[in-house]
């Protein structure tokens, strides 16, 4: 319980500092949003009036407080580019990005864990070398390049799908998920390679532990040692990675949405960045970061439940 409370406190403080950092990052810059919205040929009175309306002429601390209270209530301000409330723009975007991320995450775990075990079992065999080269390739391929290759080979040559063919989840859920399959695969492959590497290392480390020697001494078979003892401990070592993987998956989806033209938060974000739409960028950044921080928090809680050593030794 004490562990849980401490973690919650850290979570709240982290979210607070995220909001603070983001806010000040967007407000220390030269250049004033009002003149940005109105363009170069606005009169000084117009700019002053809009400053009043946006509140940018008040002290920073006051602006922060009114901004954060608005944020908590779901009022994220107005987009400069689209001239409409940010909350309106966000509607329907979150499920798209989250589904894309979730499908990718499932792929990563479903492929990464068995392959990682295989890599550990193949230690010293010729298969290990091939797998090593494959993981290194997987880690080194940028996801957008992979995406282009997938589009070219599976989409244009083999005609397995039509690139850019996106079906909204409001129209047809199965076809929506289907249209996310290939984009998710492009995100998943590099991350799977990373996971395979980690699991392999974790399993090899566990194999050197005393309890493995004891189990061998008591006559346990290699298969039982691997799946009955080592795997369990190796998985515990890998669970903390899920937070990290999720962060990469969401970053990946920001880029991949751009490639496939999927109308999620990533596509909105890149559009906001290119048009320097501060309120929209700010909100999206906080949104995505908070999702990751909260997931990390949940992962910490889960690890603590499955592995009491963490709670007892007090390390985080």
């Amino acid at each position: 319980m004490k562990y849980f409370l401490r973690k919650t406190l850290v979570l709240v403080l982290t979210i607070f500092s995220i909001s603070l950092l983001t806010f000040f990052a967007f407000h220390i810059i030269p250049g004033d949003p009002a003149s940005l919205i109105l363009g170069t040929n606005a009169t000084e009175e117009q700019v002053a009036a809009l400053q009043e309306q946006l509140g940018t002429n008040r002290p920073l601390s006051e602006q922060y407080i009114s901004w954060i209270t608005g944020f908590v209530r779901g009022d994220f301000g107005s987009s400069i580019r689209y001239r409409m409330p940010v909350s309106e723009l966000l509607k329907g975007r979150l499920p798209v990005t989250l589904s894309l991320g979730l499908i990718a995450l499932v792929m990563i775990l479903a492929a990464g864990i068995p392959l990682g075990i295989l890599a550990a079992r193949w230690r010293g065999k010729p298969g290990e070398k091939i797998l090593n080269i494959l993981t290194m390739l997987g880690i080194s391929v940028p996801n957008f390049f992979l995406c282009i290759l997938i589009m070219w080979i599976f989409g244009l040559i083999l005609h397995l799908f039509t690139p850019g063919d996106y079906v909204s989840y409001t129209r047809s859920l199965p076809r929506f998920l289907q249209s996310l399959f290939w984009p998710a695969l492009s995100i998943a492959i590099p991350q799977t390679a990373i996971l395979v590497k980690y699991i392999r290392t974790a399993m090899l480390e566990e194999l050197g532990e005393d309890y493995v020697r004891t189990a061998r001494g008591k006559g346990a078979g290699e298969t039982w040692i691997l799946y009955g003892h080592v795997l369990k401990n190796a998985i515990v070592a890998v669970v903390p990675l899920i937070g990290m993987i999720l962060a990469s998956v969401l970053s990946g989806s920001i880029i991949i949405e751009q490639v496939y033209g999927i109308p999620g938060m990533g596509k909105l974000l890149i559009g906001a960045v290119t048009s320097r739409d501060f309120p929209l960028t700010q909100t999206l950044v906080i949104y995505i970061t908070v999702i990751i921080v909260v997931t990390n928090f949940l992962v910490d809680i889960v690890i603590q439940v499955i592995d009491p050593r963490i709670r007892l030794s007090g390390r985080s």
Partner: peptide
């Protein structure tokens, strides 16, 4: 605090 943001 900085590292709680994804790099991108």
């Amino acid at each position: 605090a900085i590292s709680s943001f994804p790099d991108l």
